[in-house]
Amino acid sequence: MTEYKLVVVGAGGVGKSALTIQLIQNHFVDEYDPTIEDSYRKQVVIDGETCLLDILDTAGQEEYSAMRDQYMRTGEGFLCVFAINNTKSFEDIHHYREQIKRVKDSEDVPMVLVGNKCDLPSRTVDTKQAQDLARSYGIPFIETSAKTRQGVDDAFYTLVREIRKHKEKMSKDGKKKKKKSKTKCVIM
């Protein structure tokens, strides 16, 4: 069974824990209790493949930012979460993405942009803004509501699919490099 290491990042209060708990335990946590770091595991079937999701729910508070490099190193894919009623959390996505790329030393890291709290009427981040940002990053965008469960499975499952595509691409690139290195030079 394939294991996928997913990391949920975003500013404090955007609903990272609520999304994760909704996926794992099928219930909505409405009281806000700032996370330092929590880890969850769940076995699911995605596109006919049974897999184990190892999900790291991270601290959004700035005082825990020193811990970010460590979990970013171990993560295979990242859910970059903002709240649709919090423009600052949307603007912060850029910083999370840049930090992930720096730590992973790669421009090509599996990510999904997630606009959470889409059940709320007080939207300050337009869907088109988020779609445009995701398009500019070359990553999928999904709106979710941890409260109603809308888009929750889709967000995590899409990230797994992005990781699969990335692994497939990397193995193809690896095979191309191996083929090239088999060419021999004969000096007579």
Rank of each mutant, 00 (worst) to 15 (best):
K5E: 07
I46C: 10
E3V: 09
V29C: 12
Y64L: 08
T20E: 05
V9S: 06
G13K: 08
Q61P: 07
E62G: 06
G13M: 12
G12E: 15
E63H: 07
D30P: 10
V8A: 06
L23P: 03
V45A: 14
T2H: 13
G48P: 08
P34V: 05
K5V: 03
S39T: 14
I46A: 11
Q25W: 03
G15H: 02
V9G: 06
V8M: 06
Q25Y: 03
Y64D: 02
D54T: 06
K42D: 11
T58S: 09
E49Q: 14
H27L: 15
P34R: 03
C51N: 12
G15D: 00
Y4Q: 14
K5Q: 07
C51L: 10
D33E: 09
F28K: 04
V44L: 12
G15Y: 00
D54V: 04
L6K: 00
S17A: 02
Y64N: 01
F28D: 03
L52S: 15
A59Y: 00
V9P: 01
E63S: 07
N26P: 07
G15E: 01
L23W: 12
G48Y: 07
I24S: 08
G10W: 01
L23D: 07
L6F: 11
E62N: 07
V45S: 14
T20L: 09
V45C: 14
S17K: 02
E49V: 09
T2C: 13
I55Q: 04
K16C: 08
D38H: 03
A59V: 01
I36S: 04
T50Q: 09
T35N: 01
V7A: 09
G60D: 03
Q61L: 09
K16W: 01
R41T: 13
E62R: 06
D57L: 02
Y4L: 14
T35P: 01
G15Q: 02
Q61K: 10
C51Y: 14
I21G: 15
T35W: 03
G10P: 00
E37S: 00
D57V: 03
G12P: 10
D47A: 09
C51P: 13
Y4G: 10
L53S: 10
K16R: 03
T58I: 02
Q25N: 13
T58H: 03
D33Q: 03
E49D: 11
L23Q: 15
D47E: 11
E49K: 11
Q61V: 09
S17D: 00
V14W: 04
H27N: 13
P34Y: 06
A59S: 11
I36K: 02
G10M: 00
L19R: 00
Y64C: 03
V44P: 13
V14Q: 09
E31K: 07
E3F: 07
V29I: 14
G12L: 06
D33N: 04
K5W: 01
H27Y: 12
K5M: 04
L6D: 00
L53R: 03
I55K: 01
D57T: 02
Y32I: 05
V44Y: 08
L6Y: 05
K16F: 00
D30C: 11
G60W: 00
G48L: 05
E31Y: 15
E62V: 07
N26G: 13
V14P: 10
E31W: 09
L53A: 11
I46E: 13
T35R: 00
Y40E: 01
D54P: 06
S17C: 03
V44Q: 13
E37C: 03
S17G: 03
Q61C: 10
T2D: 15
S17L: 00
E63M: 06
Y40V: 04
V44A: 13
T35G: 02
I21W: 09
I21T: 15
D30Q: 14
V44F: 08
T58E: 03
A59P: 02
E62K: 06
V14M: 11
E31F: 15
D57R: 00
G13Y: 09
Y40K: 02
D47Q: 09
A18H: 06
Y32K: 03
K42I: 09
T58D: 01
Y40I: 03
L6A: 06
V45W: 08
V8F: 04
K42L: 12
L53M: 12
R41Q: 12
A11Q: 09
G12F: 07
L19M: 14
E3R: 09
V14C: 10
C51T: 11
D30N: 11
D47T: 08
V14S: 12
A18P: 03
Q25V: 06
G15R: 00
I55H: 07
V7W: 11
Q61W: 04
D54Q: 07
Q22C: 05
R41A: 12
A59Q: 00
V29D: 13
I21S: 15
P34C: 06
C51Q: 11
T35K: 00
E31G: 09
D47P: 07
E3K: 14
Y4R: 14
T35A: 00
V9I: 11
N26M: 09
T2P: 12
T35H: 02
G10Y: 02
E37L: 01
Q61N: 12
D47Y: 06
G15A: 01
L19I: 11
S17Y: 00
E49R: 09
H27M: 15
G10L: 01
A11C: 12
Q22T: 07
E31Q: 08
Y32W: 10
A11H: 08
S39G: 15
I55L: 08
K5P: 10
K5H: 09
R41C: 11
Q43R: 14
D30K: 13
V9E: 01
Q61Y: 05
L53T: 11
K42A: 10
Q43F: 07
G60R: 01
E31P: 08
Y4C: 10
K5S: 08
G13W: 08
E31L: 12
L6G: 04
I46T: 11
A18M: 09
Q61F: 05
V44M: 13
I24C: 07
T20D: 08
G60K: 01
L53V: 13
I46P: 09
V44T: 15
V29W: 08
L52H: 15
V8I: 10
T2K: 14
A59N: 04
G13Q: 12
V7N: 07
E37M: 01
G15F: 00
T58L: 00
R41Y: 11
T2S: 14
Y40C: 02
H27S: 14
T35M: 00
T50F: 08
A18Q: 12
T20A: 09
I55G: 04
D54A: 05
K5G: 08
Q43M: 09
D38V: 03
E31M: 14
D38G: 03
V29M: 14
D33V: 03
K16V: 01
L56W: 05
F28V: 06
L53H: 07
G60V: 01
T20H: 03
G60N: 02
G48H: 10
D47R: 07
Q22P: 03
